[in-house]
């Protein structure tokens, strides 16, 4: 058994809540609802709401202010509601992240003359720094490059509690360029994960703010990989030196959807603190915490050793290289012609 872990800012994170019905009843759908002044999505039903990456205070067990206004219907007459809610009192709180645990990712640099503020952090001009964002040799999908053991239904460590792989994540791109060792050299597979937010701990689900970009959620994920064959074993001994990531200019190539990369570097080079880009020595910084990734993998190992965490067999595989699934850009079409 090999346990893997990752702890970094992950886009596509959010949570569903069912807060219970008020008396008289109120239908949030079609109205406006806020949790601590953060707008939430109400379009699913009467009292089910969806919140983007700001569930931190709820997870910490703090009271949160719910305010709601709606148009009122015959069966749901109430039009206005203001109350405190607490995660322990509401019916369900379900973390459902549509795209987590990216299998490899870009290294962000800035070729322009100005500082840029990105979801990859603050990137200084003229190749002033390079930011990367995966746990490398410890990252779940980099230890199972062809999705031989991780699939729909795989039980995982999620935010300090237990969760499951629900589906392949959005933008899942199994056909991405791979090395001879099978390891993707570009952003490739992703996971959609689901779990009971009530079990999770604020330590492993951290509200995160990227200056000039916006908020996201730093999520702790750990995935066990059973060594079922020599082939799987070979994949799990992958080291940082074997994993290459593309260096991308976030001042021009990334925002303009240009495919150009400035080269490839290994995670061993990234972790050394400096990489070479266009002949220049560039200091590196990480957005993903390796220290915490190791801690997650160790916690999961302990759970398994104590028999508290039993492994599951996937009920369906994630789409693989042969699936034909690719990550497509939006094809814009003129309206009304």
């Amino acid at each position: 058994m090999v346990t893997t872990g990752t702890f970094g800012p992950m886009c596509g994170s959010g949570a569903f809540f069912n807060v219970g019905h008020s008396k008289p009843r109120m239908k949030f759908g079609g109205g406006k609802v806020y949790l601590n002044d953060v707008p939430v999505y109400t379009g699913t039903a009467a009292v089910d709401i969806f919140l983007g990456a700001t569930a931190k205070e709820l997870v910490a067990g703090k009271d949160v202010i719910l305010t709601a206004t709606a148009f009122g219907t015959d069966c749901y007459p109430r039009k206005k509601l203001e109350t405190l809610i607490n995660i322990k009192d509401i019916n369900e709180a379900i973390l459902f992240n549509l795209r987590n645990a990216y299998q490899n990712y870009n290294v962000a640099v800035n070729l322009s003359e100005k500082v840029i503020y990105t979801y990859m952090g603050v990137i200084k001009p003229n190749l002033g720094n390079a930011n990367y964002s995966t746990a490398g040799q410890l990252s779940p999908l980099l230890n199972d490059p062809y999705y031989k053991t991780i699939g729909v239904g795989t039980k995982i460590f999620l935010g300090g509690g237990i969760g499951y792989v629900a589906w392949h994540g959005t933008q899942h791109d199994p056909a991405a360029l791979r090395g001879d060792n099978g390891v993707p050299r570009r952003g490739a597979g992703t996971l959609a994960v689901i779990g009971d937010l009530k079990q999770m701990k604020p330590e492993w689900l951290v509200g995160t703010s990227m200056l000039g970009y916006g908020c996201t959620l730093t999520v702790g994920i750990g995935v066990p990989i059973p060594i079922l064959s020599e082939e799987i074993l070979r994949y799990t001994v992958v080291s940082d030196a074997d994993i290459l990531a593309p260096v991308v200019d976030y001042s021009e190539a990334y925002p303009q959807m240009k495919p150009d990369i400035l080269g490839e570097v290994s995670y061993a080079e990234l972790r050394s603190g400096r990489i070479k880009v266009q002949g220049k020595d560039v200091p590196t910084g990480s957005l993903s915490s390796y220290l915490k990734a190791v801690e997650i993998a160790s916690i999961l190992k302990k759970w398994i050793e104590k028999g508290e965490f039993l492994l599951t067999e996937p009920v369906a595989p994630l789409p693989g290289v042969e699936s034909g699934i690719t990550f497509k850009p939006l094809k814009e079409r003129p309206i009304g012609e």
Partner: peptide, 12 residues
């Protein structure tokens, strides 16, 4: 209690 030891500060 908030630091995740990611390292985004190092090059900044």
């Amino acid at each position: 209690s908030r630091c995740t030891h990611c390292g985004a500060c190092i090059t900044i």
